[in-house]
C-alpha cells in the first residue's frame, strides 16, 4: 500500500530523515519506535505533507502514486490520515461541524455528492459509540479545553469517520491513562481490516500491547536501524534505547 524509498527530509535546513525505507502492505500494522529526536514525528509529518518538512530525496508511493508532489489535503483525499500527537484547537468550530466539512471535502474530491444529513448523523452516532464519545462532546469546540484523552479519542473518531487507507498514529498513547488507552486501542482495532494499514509511532511499548503490530521498526538518527516482529518492541523495552545506540 505505502512504500517509502530512501526518504530524506529536513526542517528549516536541518536534516532529520536520512534515507528511510519502509514497505507497508494492506492489512498490516507497523510500529515505528525510537528515542526522542530520532525523527519519528518528522516521518509522520513528511508523509502527511506538512509544508515545513522538505522532502529532499526519495519517494513515498501510495498505491502506485507518489505523494511527494501533492498538497496535504490531496494526500488526505488519497486516504492518508494522521492522528496528531498534539491535536490543534479550532475555537468555535464544533466536532460535528468539523467532521462534516472534512467528510464532504473528501467526497467532493472523489466526485461524490455531499453525504445526506441522515446518513451523516447515523454514521456520527455509530462511530462515536465506538469511541465511547457522548453527544455533548460532539457539539464542543474542536479540541478546545479537551483533556488529553478526549483529544486522542477525537482523533480516532475522525479516523473512524474518514475511513482512511493508511492511518498514522503519532504518539497516540501520550497523555492517556490506562482506561482511555484501552478505549482508543479498542477503537483502532475495530477499524483494522484487510484493506487498510496502520503505522503506529510510539516511544513506549505500552500501546503495542493493545494494538499489536505485525512489524516493528526502530528509528535512530533518521534511519531505520532494526526491524523485526513485536518481540523487538519487548526487547527494546527491556534493554532501553541505549542498546540501539550502541548498535548504530
Amino acid at each position: 500500500m505505502l512504500s517509502i524509498e530512501n526518504l530524506h527530509a529536513q526542517v528549516e535546513g536541518k536534516k532529520i530523515l536520512n534515507g528511510i525505507d519502509l514497505d507497508i502492505k494492506a492489512g498490516e500494522v507497523h510500529a515505528i519506535m525510537g528515542p526522542n529526536g530520532s525523527g519519528k514525528s518528522t516521518l509522520s509529518a513528511a508523509i502527511a505533507g506538512h509544508q515545513d518538512y522538505d522532502v529532499t530525496k526519495g519517494a513515498m508511493i501510495l498505491e502506485g502514486e507518489d505523494l511527494s508532489e501533492l498538497d496535504a489535503e490531496e494526500r488526505a483525499h488519497k486516504g492518508v490520515f494522521l492522528s496528531f500527537q498534539y491535536p490543534v484547537e479550532i475555537p468555535g468550530v464544533s466536532v460535528t461541524n468539523f467532521i462534516k466539512t472534512a467528510i464532504n471535502a473528501n467526497r467532493k474530491a472523489k466526485g461524490f455528492e455531499d453525504m445526506p444529513a441522515k446518513e451523516m448523523l447515523q454514521k456520527i452516532r455509530e462511530k462515536s459509540n465506538l469511541l465511547e464519545i457522548d453527544s455533548r462532546f460532539l457539539s464542543r469546540s474542536l479540541n478546545e479545553g479537551f483533556s488529553g484523552g478526549e483529544k486522542k479519542r477525537n482523533e480516532i473518531f475522525q479516523m473512524a469517520m474518514l475511513e482512511p487507507k493508511l492511518s498514522i498514529l503519532d504518539e497516540t498513547d501520550s497523555g492517556l491513562d490506562i482506561d482511555a488507552l484501552k478505549i482508543v486501542a479498542n477503537g483502532v482495532n475495530k477499524l483494522r481490516s484487510k484493506d487498510n494499514a496502520i503505522l503506529v509511532i510510539t516511544h513506549y511499548q505500552r500501546l503495542l500491547e493493545y494494538i499489536v503490530p505485525d512489524f516493528v521498526h526502530v528509528l535512530f538518527d533518521g534511519k531505520i536501524v532494526k526491524s523485526g516482529t513485536k518481540d523487538l518492541a519487548i526487547q527494546l523495552e527491556e534493554k532501553g534505547y541505549d542498546w540501539i545506540k550502541e548498535m548504530a
Partner: peptide, 20 residues
C-alpha cells in the same frame, strides 16, 4: 494544516476557522 490533513483545502479551512 490540521484541516488540510483531514482533506479540507486551505480556502475552506480558513472559512471554517473564521466562522469558528
Amino acid at each position: 494544516f490540521y484541516c488540510n490533513q483531514r482533506g479540507i483545502d486551505p480556502e475552506k479551512a480558513i472559512a471554517l476557522i473564521v466562522n469558528g
